[in-house]
């Protein structure tokens, strides 16, 4: 995986680069928006991390220009501001997620993984979560390379869990997104699918955690 980091603060940039490099992500670092614009046009990155407060052209303008050129690279905004308007503006002009400074590296890594997973799903119709693989086109799931025997509904539930991770997927959203096909789906039914999925994932590092009263989260143990 290769990503571009646009950040003018050397300490932050070196921390991110080194931290991501240790988890196997190659990071190209640029200090300003102008060279980043051409870099994004020339190289196909898996992700761009863009700081908003850049000298010269700011991060928001960079994202706007990149999107205008039709470059669909997933963008994670780094910002020292977390006011509503900054968030909304960033997401409106085409950023995919934002992270407010200061942050912890594991959080950054989790966000990056989630963004990349989602963008890969739309590009290659495939999802990955640890040892778990899901092909949306063929509608089949693999665990450690072996095919998982799943019913259609179980596959749907797993797909939503994988798309949501590392966020919690609410039972309500799950019911809504599944129910629209064949009428209402009862919460009990969801619980049955989840327990079946759990049984089938029992021997792996992938687990489904119940968050009392809200829903489920896919985790790697």
């Amino acid at each position: 995986m290769r990503l571009l980091l646009v950040e003018d603060d050397a300490t932050v940039a070196s921390g991110i680069s080194e931290g991501l490099a240790r988890s196997g992500i190659a990071v190209d670092h640029l200090r300003a928006a102008e060279p980043a614009e051409s870099a994004l046009a020339l190289t196909s990155y898996d992700l761009a991390i863009i700081d908003i407060g850049l000298p010269g052209m700011d991060g928001l303008e960079l994202i706007r220009r990149v999107r205008r050129k039709g470059i669909m690279v997933p963008v994670l905004i780094l910002t020292a501001r977390d006011g509503l308007e900054d968030r909304v503006k960033g997401l409106d002009i085409g950023a995919d997620d934002y992270l407010v400074k200061p942050f912890l590296l594991p959080e950054l890594q989790a966000r990056i993984r989630a963004l990349v997973r989602r963008s890969q799903a739309s590009v290659s119709s495939g999802l990955e979560f640890g040892p778990l693989g899901l092909d949306l086109g063929l509608r089949m799931a693999t665990l450690n390379g072996t095919l998982l025997e799943l019913t259609g509904r179980e596959l749907d539930v797993l797909q939503h869990l994988m798309l949501a991770a590392p966020k919690v997927l609410s039972k309500q959203k799950l019911t809504e997104s599944l129910g629209c096909w064949e009428g209402e789906l009862s919460p009990n039914a969801i619980e049955i699918y989840i327990s079946r999925l759990r049984a089938k994932l029992a021997d792996s590092v992938v687990q489904i955690r119940t968050v009392r009263g809200i829903g489920y989260r896919l985790e790697l143990s």
């Binding site: 300490t11 080194e18 200061p102 942050f103 590296l105």
Partner: peptide, 15 residues
Amino acid sequence: QLRTPLAGLQTQLEL
């Protein structure tokens, strides 16, 4: 103004 240096401090410390 404090946020960026704090972000630097935290990431470096983690490393």
